[in-house]
């Protein structure tokens, strides 16, 4: 991926953000009657000004990126890319399952999967480490910090 592609991605990201700001000002805030008036009533003026500043700065940066003759290419080895995507996918699945399945059923497999993605292959050691990590943290947070971890549909919470 080149620096210009990244610059375009960031520009697209901010275009969406600025678009959302203006869309919300003209719909939700307008309907609430907070998109006009003096400093007290007008809650839209400040975010609008910030959004305009972002748009202007992003355009300047985009222009600078394209005028600059320096073009950087970010090369990531395929294995490293797979690891990064793998970690994000595993973590996303974990976060999605955390609510319905609960902490105790999801954390050990997540830790195990991440160690596997990192290249570890000593399954016995990995399993023990995953169990120690997930239950160790649960113990500290539930016992000492009074945090009630997600129990999921099975309401799996350990009364330490």
């Amino acid at each position: 991926m080149t620096s210009r592609t990244l610059a375009l991605l960031v520009t697209a990201f901010f275009a969406v953000i600025v678009g959302i700001v203006f869309q919300q000002i003209h719909t939700s805030m307008h309907e609430q009657g907070i998109a006009s008036g003096g400093p007290y009533d007008n809650a839209a003026a400040y975010p609008r000004a910030v959004a305009i500043a972002i748009a202007a700065l992003v355009l300047v940066q985009l222009l600078a990126d394209f005028i600059s003759d320096r073009k950087e290419t970010m090369r990531l080895p395929p294995d490293a890319f797979k690891r990064a995507v793998g970690l994000l996918v595993v973590f996303a699945v974990y976060l999605c399952c955390l609510g319905p399945l609960g902490y105790h059923l999801t954390t050990t497999p997540m830790v195990f999967a991440i160690m596997f993605i990192c290249g570890a292959r000593q399954f016995g050691k990995m399993l023990i480490a995953a169990l120690v990590m997930s239950f160790g943290f649960a113990f500290v947070f539930e016992k000492f910090l009074n945090v009630v971890l997600p129990g999921g549909v099975f309401r799996l919470n350990i009364p330490w």
């Binding site: 970690l87 955390l98 997540m110 991440i114 160690m115 943290f137 947070f141």
Partner: peptide
């Protein structure tokens, strides 16, 4: 490979 999952658990529990 031990450190990364530890931090991810900490991020998740801490944020929750």
């Amino acid at each position: 490979f031990y450190l990364i999952p530890i931090i991810l658990i900490l991020c998740s529990i801490g944020t929750f």
